[in-house]
Design a protein around this nucleic acid. Sequence first.
DNA 1: CAGTGGTCTAGACCACAGT
DNA 2: CTGTGGTCTAGACCACTGA
Lengths: 238, 238
Amino acid sequence: MGLTNQPQYRRLYESLRKQIVDGVYREGDLLPSENELCAIHGLTRPTVRKSLDLLLNEGFIKKQQGLGSIVHKLPKGIGILSLAGTTIATEGRELYTRVILKPVVSQWPENFIFSLSENEKEVGCIRIERLRLLNNRPLLFEYTYLPNINLPRFTSRNLENKSLFDILRQNYKLEVKGGEQYIKAIEANDKKICSYLRVSKGHPILHLKRKLETNRINFSFYSVLYCNTDEHSIYGVF
Amino acid sequence: MGLTNQPQYRRLYESLRKQIVDGVYREGDLLPSENELCAIHGLTRPTVRKSLDLLLNEGFIKKQQGLGSIVHKLPKGIGILSLAGTTIATEGRELYTRVILKPVVSQWPENFIFSLSENEKEVGCIRIERLRLLNNRPLLFEYTYLPNINLPRFTSRNLENKSLFDILRQNYKLEVKGGEQYIKAIEANDKKICSYLRVSKGHPILHLKRKLETNRINFSFYSVLYCNTDEHSIYGVF
DNA sequence: CAGTGGTCTAGACCACAGT
DNA sequence: CTGTGGTCTAGACCACTGA
């Protein structure tokens, strides 16, 4: 957290974001004006505006010309559509991550959901299976596939209730920069999925396929998610 | 199209976007470098970079430091998660919009999906119901609700296979600036929905609730969508 | 009116990719 | 090495808001 080698706009973004999440600024409040933020942090307007753009894109603030930057209400759903929102946006409730299958080296599945490069195919993958619970109730089941390239000791890492993103960043200097995803509504058919999500066969669930791109060139990883949306919607801004 | 009173970064963005969609640049191609774009269009780098940021956020390009801006492959799904992607991203196939219920003035539904201001409640709403078809096959059914504020002659407009966004922009100077959405997987229960989407009762479908914010202060409109994702996924980038 | 965000310029230095 | 994108500065003028 709070690495000092982060760009300034990024540090200001994280600082403001934390204050909004922590309730220092509440829904409808105005953030300090851009000029005030410049003065406070010793930055120029383009830099400050870049920070605010990040908050804007993630739905934390709205802007109104002639007025200011207005804090948006925190979302009521589960934010997994956007980048930063993966584990937040659960209204203070705790999202717990239980590891079902610890990282193992294996082959890529047949007919993998995304097309793979020759290099990726050769090296094989590291698989993980995790279940996410909200208030002790299973919410989504996630298969993760990482190409087995330069990830020393990864299979012996303890992932229980830890952020995969954080582990990749702190131990392997891998930053997730973006990605793409495909969403479907399907019937729960797989016995394993039904059992973990505690839904009956045929129950409608969300199916997400995601490709996550990182700062390391040609290093992407993948995940397949099954999500029970009976009680919690998936939330996103645009 | 191509309004001259648009900001420069916006015009450059639209120009590049069109060239990508039209296939002038193809997957893997490099766009002209930022400095070249500056020279070509007589702009400075921050302005050019703002254009490229838009393309980046919508998944049209990736960037690689030291290399350039790389054109991304066009998505394979239906892009309704992002702003500009509402009707594009269907691989050249035609998305047709059939009006089921022409715009009518009415009251807001009971227990509306989003909270409304007092003003919105008072003025009532304009309702529309539309069916979107891809290759003549029904794909999604959409209820739209606009607050009945300063939209002269809206109810007599012909919306058949026209973009609602375009009509709002051209006739009422309303630009959609962003929004929020909630996604669920549900069983198709409503007879009307089943019939229009041609799915059997109990079939899993996607349910989206969206709030769309505009450049007119405190003017948002809303839509509820039911989408058959059997053949086409919903696509998004982040 | 003063203050806000929206747009734009003209530079600068850095880290990184390919040669 | 050169050229690329990534970050940042120090200004400027505009359109819009609220008092």
